[in-house]
Design a protein around this nucleic acid. Sequence first.
DNA 1: TGATCTTTCGAACGAACGTTCGACCAATTC
DNA 2: GAATTGGTCGAACGTTCGTTCGAAAGATCA
Lengths: 222, 222
Amino acid sequence: MPRAVESEQSSQKLEIILRHAAQVFADKGYEGASIRDISRSSRVSLSGLYYYVKSKQEILYLIQLSTFRTILARLQAALRGVRDPSERLRILVHNHLAYFLEHPTEMKVLAHEDDALEGAYRQEVAEIKRKYYGIAVEIFEALQPAGQARGLNSRVAVLSLFGMMNWIHTWHRPQRDPQAEALSEAMSRMFLHGVMNERSPVARRPLPNTRARETRAARIAV
Amino acid sequence: MPRAVESEQSSQKLEIILRHAAQVFADKGYEGASIRDISRSSRVSLSGLYYYVKSKQEILYLIQLSTFRTILARLQAALRGVRDPSERLRILVHNHLAYFLEHPTEMKVLAHEDDALEGAYRQEVAEIKRKYYGIAVEIFEALQPAGQARGLNSRVAVLSLFGMMNWIHTWHRPQRDPQAEALSEAMSRMFLHGVMNERSPVARRPLPNTRARETRAARIAV
DNA sequence: TGATCTTTCGAACGAACGTTCGACCAATTC
DNA sequence: GAATTGGTCGAACGTTCGTTCGAAAGATCA
């Protein structure tokens, strides 16, 4: 019989399986990875896996769902009480990148296996993704009434930002590249003010001295 | 016997095969696609494919190699004679995005199947990629002596730019989203000057009137 | 017409795939 | 101590995979 209501032990073992599965999917891709790979790496027999999980698709679904739920919940918590649009954007970027660097395997699976799910699984994940995206659009558009944002297509701007952030799974090496703090500061700054040195950057928060120079974290060594 | 020196006809048929293969890889991913899928869609028998091609890996290799070579050659041609760093960056972005939107299937295969190649195939493609990346870094760093670029990690800045651009394969819908001109103008502008409205944008070229407003193409409807 | 070379393909190879089944073991309940 | 329950797994299922092989059909030139 398949697992019906999970005991403490049981759901703990499911988590182990999902953790190893995420690693395997990240290494070989969803299609390139086999259930046997997951069985070997998690030390659960091939048939034993099916006590915890209905199918290979469900494994991917469970990984994506829980990862996305966590990152969304963290974002909502971090945003609570913050009103300034620029600051909210910085929080979004930091939350996204910090989670990315803490859980690189799960996030790679999220970013790279976007098309692999089908049917109801796909739709359920898409729903969370829409919500996450919607928050980003709201934040972006709130930059405008303040008379700050250029006349830019929100969709293009926000998806470009996600592109910057999600692409890091292809290049970021923890030893070599900046960590979450510096990286999110750099990307927020690039997104908000660009790479060029027009006059002076806007200060992080409205300060007496509007011409404050950039923070240390943003000035990454070349 | 496998094809040795290709005749006119023969290499033409190889191109047909590669075009269909790119479509199949783009739809199902490299691992998810089968040689039989490619056989079916290109109307060449399963064994017939192996007259033109040594292996499934070689198919992917040939697609990636020729796509990358073309985009690199076009970039070098478009850059010839242009000295202004900002303008060179705009050319790079436009070249990349224009090719992306003209050949979405090949570019999706390039962006998405980055890890799929192995051994010598992988290295040969990596070499071109390094060259392409190197040009981008050069352009970016040339923004600095002019006293224009912020103290930003080149690697982070350039790879963020590639992230913006390459990510479009996940979201761009030709009917709905801006075309190459408007899109590259928007992304160049975002990268160079950001999304916020600090004072005034810098003019495209050094003009008498440094405070010229943005061009029409950049003001995309929301 | 016959010889040679290029191109095509049906049939089969062994290996690997996702999934299922029924037997089994250990612990808990009566 | 018999029955029940939660967890485990070896063996096998039918299918699909990438690749090979040898025969044969078409083209080219003697």
